[in-house]
């Protein structure tokens, strides 16, 4: 009896295709979306602590709209947008960029909300001390308040990363060749080439890979949360 279980012949090439073509696309998309979300979200969240009604209303609107809409609706909308003409240039987002923008709008709204809470949780004395040292609003926030808030933001960031990795699959709908799409394409190929789609096995595989990526990150988020409390 052979020790190793022989994998069926179709498995290897399909797995290689999915891991080489699909998975990097998923991870790249997640990395771009998380970075953009963090940069924009921290900025907007800090601005949200300024007591200026019109600005607050504007930022609130941004946050509530992009958090409120299903991500698939946002991504579809951006993808559907006709070409924009800006300064004589025609801007047309491809599917990958449309997905990255859609995820970033949602992600930045999440980060902004979390940042507001984190910035407001920094004691007033810190503001006063920084002000006494001669920092203006900008310097105070950039060098004293936000760096302290970042510590508190770490667990939600890791949580956001997990969320965004999982939500990259929505790009499937507009044809981005992320991991799920890569699996679907091979299902179709196997259907015509072998008469058996092997869909159950392939999507189970997709599920397992996402779990292997997400679960350690979830544990990390929980660990960070415990340590900070």
């Amino acid at each position: 009896m052979p020790l190793a279980y022989e994998l069926p012949e179709w498995v290897r090439p399909v797995a290689v295709y999915m891991l080489r073509e699909g998975l990097p696309e998923t991870l790249k998309l997640a990395a771009v979306a998380v970075t953009v979300s963090a940069l924009i979200g921290i900025l907007l969240g800090t601005f949200l602590t300024i007591h200026f009604r019109p600005l607050q209303a504007l930022l609130r609107f941004y946050i509530e709209v992009w958090r409120g809409l299903p991500i698939i609706v946002t991504i579809l909308f951006i993808y559907w947008l006709p070409a924009l003409h800006v300064l004589g240039q025609t801007i047309q987002l491809d599917a990958y960029t449309a997905a990255a923008v859609g995820l970033s709008l949602w992600g930045s709204a999440q980060v902004a909300e979390a940042t507001r809470g984190a910035v407001q949780s920094i004691p007033k004395e810190q503001h006063e001390a920084a002000a006494a040292l001669g920092f203006g609003w900008l310097g105070r926030h950039a060098f004293v308040i936000v760096p302290q808030a970042l510590r508190r933001l770490l667990p939600p960031f890791v949580g956001l990363l997990v969320n965004i990795i999982q939500n990259t699959t929505i790009a499937f709908v507009i044809g981005v060749n992320e991991f799920l799409q890569a699996g679907q394409r091979q299902v179709e190929n196997l259907t015509t080439q072998t008469g058996n789609p092997h869909a159950f096995e392939i999507f189970a595989g997709v599920l397992v890979v996402f779990f292997i990526i997400s679960f350690p990150l979830t544990m990390l988020a929980r660990y960070l949360e415990r340590r900070l409390v």
Partner: peptide, 14 residues
């Protein structure tokens, strides 16, 4: 198409 063999599809090497 990239998901419609045998008209438009991607082989396992992409």
């Amino acid at each position: 198409k990239c998901d419609f063999p045998p008209f438009g599809w991607q082989d396992t090497s992409g």
